[in-house]
Amino acid sequence: RTAFSSEQLARLKREFNENRYLTERRRQQLSSELGLNEAQIKIWFQNKRA
């Protein structure tokens, strides 16, 4: 289980509010910017949509 920092969570929530689905390219960008792997971001979005 991933423990996200408050900064990472704030960024993910802001991104989710703008778009509930990420393109592969956007997921790669977020992964690089947040220091998370793409799978972690993908799962976070899946869980948030559920």
Rank of each mutant, 00 (worst) to 15 (best):
R1C: 15
R1D: 15
R1N: 15
R1K: 14
R1T: 14
R1E: 15
R1V: 14
T2Y: 14
T2H: 14
T2I: 09
T2G: 13
T2K: 09
T2F: 14
T2N: 12
T2D: 14
T2Q: 13
T2A: 07
T2P: 14
T2C: 14
T2E: 14
A3M: 08
A3E: 15
A3K: 12
A3Y: 14
A3L: 10
A3R: 11
A3I: 11
A3W: 13
A3F: 14
A3Q: 13
A3T: 10
F4M: 08
F4D: 02
F4Y: 08
F4H: 02
F4P: 04
F4T: 03
F4K: 02
F4L: 11
F4C: 05
S5D: 05
S5F: 03
S5V: 03
S5Q: 03
S5R: 04
S5H: 03
S5P: 02
S5C: 06
S5A: 02
S5I: 03
S5N: 10
S6I: 11
S6L: 10
S6W: 09
S6P: 10
S6N: 09
S6Y: 11
S6C: 14
S6D: 13
S6F: 11
S6A: 09
S6M: 10
E7R: 07
E7D: 10
E7A: 08
E7L: 08
E7I: 08
E7W: 12
E7V: 07
E7Q: 09
E7C: 07
E7G: 05
E7H: 08
E7S: 09
E7Y: 10
E7M: 08
E7F: 09
Q8A: 07
Q8R: 02
Q8W: 02
Q8Y: 02
Q8V: 10
Q8N: 04
Q8M: 05
Q8L: 04
Q8C: 06
Q8F: 03
Q8P: 01
Q8T: 06
Q8I: 13
Q8H: 05
Q8S: 04
Q8D: 05
L9G: 01
L9P: 00
L9V: 09
L9D: 05
L9E: 10
L9I: 12
L9T: 05
L9M: 07
L9K: 05
L9N: 05
A10S: 09
A10H: 07
A10R: 08
A10G: 05
A10Q: 09
A10I: 08
A10W: 06
A10E: 14
A10T: 07
A10F: 06
A10Y: 06
R11Q: 06
R11V: 11
R11C: 06
R11A: 12
R11D: 03
R11E: 06
R11W: 05
R11L: 07
L12W: 02
L12Y: 01
L12V: 01
L12N: 00
L12C: 04
K13C: 14
K13Q: 14
K13N: 15
K13L: 15
K13P: 00
K13F: 10
R14M: 11
R14H: 13
R14V: 12
R14K: 14
R14D: 08
R14T: 11
R14Q: 14
R14I: 09
E15P: 00
E15Q: 03
E15I: 04
E15T: 02
E15G: 02
F16Q: 02
F16R: 02
F16A: 02
F16P: 00
F16V: 02
F16K: 02
F16W: 10
F16Y: 10
F16N: 01
N17S: 12
N17T: 10
N17W: 06
N17L: 09
N17D: 13
N17P: 01
N17Q: 12
E18Y: 07
E18Q: 11
E18V: 07
E18R: 11
E18F: 07
E18P: 01
E18H: 09
E18A: 09
E18C: 09
E18N: 09
E18L: 11
N19C: 10
N19T: 05
N19P: 02
N19H: 09
N19M: 04
N19A: 04
N19L: 04
R20T: 05
R20K: 09
R20S: 12
R20I: 11
R20H: 10
R20Q: 13
Y21E: 08
Y21P: 05
Y21G: 04
Y21K: 06
Y21L: 07
Y21H: 10
Y21M: 06
Y21N: 07
Y21D: 08
L22Q: 02
L22T: 03
L22C: 05
L22H: 01
L22M: 05
L22K: 00
L22G: 02
L22D: 10
L22N: 02
L22V: 05
T23S: 14
T23K: 03
T23H: 04
T23M: 02
T23W: 04
T23R: 03
T23N: 09
T23G: 07
T23I: 02
T23A: 04
E24C: 07
E24P: 15
E24T: 13
E24V: 13
E24K: 14
E24S: 14
E24I: 11
E24D: 13
E24Y: 08
E24L: 10
R25L: 12
R25H: 10
R25K: 14
R25D: 12
R25E: 15
R26C: 05
R26Q: 10
R26M: 08
R26W: 03
R26I: 07
R26D: 05
R26T: 06
R26K: 12
R26F: 04
R26N: 05
R26E: 06
R26H: 06
R27T: 15
R27K: 11
R27E: 09
R27C: 14
R27F: 11
R27Y: 12
R27H: 04
R27G: 09
R27V: 15
R27D: 01
Q28L: 09
Q28P: 01
Q28G: 06
Q28A: 11
Q28F: 07
Q28M: 09
Q28E: 09
Q28K: 15
Q28D: 04
Q29V: 07
Q29S: 08
Q29G: 04
Q29W: 07
Q29F: 08
Q29A: 12
Q29I: 11
Q29T: 08
Q29D: 07
Q29Y: 07
Q29M: 09
Q29P: 01
L30W: 01
L30R: 00
L30M: 04
L30S: 00
L30K: 00
L30Q: 02
S31Y: 03
S31R: 03
S31Q: 05
S31N: 02
S31T: 05
S31E: 06
S31L: 03
S31A: 13
S31W: 03
S31K: 04
S31I: 05
S31D: 00
S31P: 01
S31M: 05
S32N: 06
S32V: 14
S32I: 14
S32R: 12
S32A: 13
S32K: 14
S32Q: 13
S32H: 10
S32L: 15
S32M: 14
E33N: 03
E33C: 03
E33L: 05
E33M: 05
E33F: 03
E33D: 07
E33H: 04
E33Y: 03
E33W: 04
L34C: 00
L34I: 08
L34N: 01
L34F: 02
L34A: 00
L34T: 07
L34Q: 01
L34K: 01
G35P: 00
G35F: 04
G35C: 06
G35L: 05
G35T: 03
G35V: 03
G35K: 06
L36Q: 01
L36W: 02
L36S: 02
L36P: 00
L36M: 07
L36Y: 01
L36I: 12
N37R: 08
N37G: 12
N37E: 14
N37Y: 06
N37P: 15
N37H: 12
N37M: 09
N37L: 11
N37A: 13
N37V: 06
E38V: 08
E38L: 05
E38F: 04
E38K: 05
E38Q: 06
E38A: 07
E38R: 04
E38I: 07
E38T: 06
E38S: 06
E38M: 06
E38H: 04
E38W: 05
A39M: 14
A39C: 13
A39R: 09
A39W: 15
A39E: 15
A39S: 10
A39V: 12
A39K: 12
Q40D: 15
Q40T: 13
Q40N: 05
Q40S: 12
Q40C: 10
Q40V: 15
Q40L: 13
I41S: 00
I41D: 00
I41G: 01
I41L: 08
I41K: 01
I41A: 00
I41C: 03
I41W: 02
I41H: 00
K42M: 12
K42I: 14
K42S: 14
K42R: 12
K42Q: 13
K42V: 15
K42A: 14
K42H: 15
K42E: 15
I43L: 13
I43H: 11
I43F: 10
I43P: 00
I43K: 10
I43A: 13
I43Q: 12
I43D: 14
W44S: 00
W44Q: 00
W44G: 00
W44Y: 08
W44F: 07
W44T: 00
W44H: 01
W44E: 00
F45Q: 01
F45R: 01
F45Y: 04
F45T: 00
F45H: 01
F45I: 02
F45N: 00
F45D: 01
F45W: 15
F45M: 03
F45G: 00
F45P: 00
F45L: 03
Q46S: 09
Q46L: 09
Q46F: 10
Q46W: 11
Q46A: 13
Q46C: 10
Q46E: 14
Q46Y: 09
Q46H: 11
Q46G: 06
Q46P: 03
Q46T: 07
Q46V: 07
Q46R: 12
N47H: 12
N47R: 13
N47D: 12
N47T: 11
N47Y: 11
K48D: 03
K48M: 15
K48W: 09
K48T: 12
K48A: 15
K48Y: 13
K48L: 07
K48G: 06
K48C: 07
K48N: 10
K48F: 09
K48I: 07
R49P: 04
R49S: 11
R49I: 15
R49D: 07
R49Q: 10
R49N: 13
R49W: 12
R49C: 08
R49Y: 08
R49M: 12
R49K: 06
R49H: 08
A50K: 14
A50M: 12
A50L: 08
A50Y: 05
A50P: 05
A50E: 11
A50N: 12
A50V: 09
A50S: 10
A50Q: 11
A50F: 10
